[in-house]
Design a protein around this nucleic acid. Structure first.
Lengths: 234, 234
DNA sequence: CTGTTTAATGAGCGTATGCTCAATAAGAAG
DNA sequence: CTTCTTATTGAGCATACGCTCATTAAACAG
């Protein structure tokens, strides 16, 4: 079992014929960040069945180095989830949605103009889909977040706007929830057209989102008046 | 090398210890069909990176047999596309949508109640997503089909209903197209909630689709009156 | 039964892929 | 320069995966 040391001379230079080198010997925190960002780009493009060899080659580093910073491919993917889905949630959204000094329709337009950037982004959308198809739990976690911080507050604001009981007094109905889902589905689908189907997306995305929010608002009013009991205080 | 014949009695009955055996030596057309159906189920669940070995094992046949009926995994996938996306298009949809003896809103509800079954189906939805993420051309082909046979006819019928010029005289506008996409996106997203995110879907799917169509119809009227030129003949 | 056809099998080939580890060298400190 | 630390490398292992092909046996004709 004696490992015969190979005298392999091969002195340093001769260097890199292949890709762009990263200026070797980075500080660990910088290298980790670089790998994570590269992994997001890579997995968004190739899915999670993409090979670690190819990812390393894209980054201009060796495959071994990858495993110095992330113990396994699975751990790397988990870090990708964290970075993509949880680090981008803006803390100001809550305040925007519930600021009753502004007209609700205006708040909704402002919020969705900003929020829609997430699902309309290439990396966010594709990784979200790959994760969902793979059965990862991140999607359910994200949906729970969106439900608590967007769906429920928006419905409560709509109730207030149109003169119905708040959701603490009258639980959210299925038609109300479906209307919320419909809005989010329509927004997400714009991204899918761009990043999954590669068909024409609207030239004016902000305008398209605005149109969706207006339609949502109008349909919400109609639907609530048709299905909710009148507020006693009126 | 004399292969010692094992006396393995096991006459027909006693049958399957491992999986469901397929009752061996099927007629070629039946076997091909069985493999194709199994492949649809399998790829919908595991994606196209699923292994042929596992597919064969699921079917209860050897991996070699798979390659007797389909020359390569790629060819099998192509057959899956054909079967899932092109064999399920109903020839009666056109007639339903354009039958001006019925009120348009009624036609729309009837059509989408039927059509929505496609994207809301487990296999259809997941395979459509996997194909799109893999960059297959089938999605673009499908979108072109939907555009010609659904989007354009529906917009033309809406124009007629609300008193605007037909699409041959006035090309479809971006807001009109976005409204169509929004409806389809909302429907598709119901399926995604079920088959991709595994979160709660509406208990009454037919009712949810009906609500979406009603909202779509109302928003279409508002939007057309706000953005299209009045019909000269009025 | 015998012979013929062909559906079906599974060992095995070449390559791909996640991951390890001994060796190497870049940079800092003296 | 020398010494020390540690970021970085890449050959290599074990297994996975698409696919082939020689062999086997089910069904049928005579």
């Amino acid at each position: 079992m004696s490992v015969q040391r190979k005298p392999k001379k091969q002195s340093a230079h001769s260097s890199q014929p292949p890709k762009q080198k990263s200026g070797k010997r980075l500080a660990p925190n910088l290298r980790a960040e670089q790998i994570l960002k590269g992994a997001i780009r890579f997995f968004a493009a190739h899915g999670f069945s993409g090979q670690t060899r190819e990812l390393a080659s894209d980054l201009g580093i060796s495959k071994g180095l990858l495993y110095r910073y992330f113990p396994s491919k699975e751990a790397l993917i988990e870090s990708v989830y964290q970075e993509v889905f949880l680090r981008r949630w803006s803390p100001t959204w809550q305040a925007v949605l519930t600021d009753r000094n502004r007209p609700l329709i205006e708040r909704l337009k402002a919020f969705y103009a900003d929020y829609a950037k997430l699902p309309l982004e290439y990396e966010w959308g594709r990784i979200y889909l790959y994760a969902g198809l793979a059965g990862a739990s991140i999607n359910r976690r994200y949906v729970r977040l969106a439900n608590e911080r967007i769906f429920r507050p928006v419905i409560d604001e709509l109730r207030h706007e149109f003169g119905f009981r708040p959701i603490e007094q009258l639980e959210i109905t299925e038609p109300e929830m479906e209307l919320m889902w419909s809005l989010h589905g329509s927004i997400f689908y714009i991204g899918m057209r761009k990043w999954v189907y590669h068909v024409k997306a609207p030239s004016d995305i902000d305008g398209a989102v605005k149109q969706l929010v207006e339609g949502f608002y109008a349909n919400a009013r109609t639907m609530m008046h048709a299905t909710l009991p009148r507020n006693m205080s009126l």
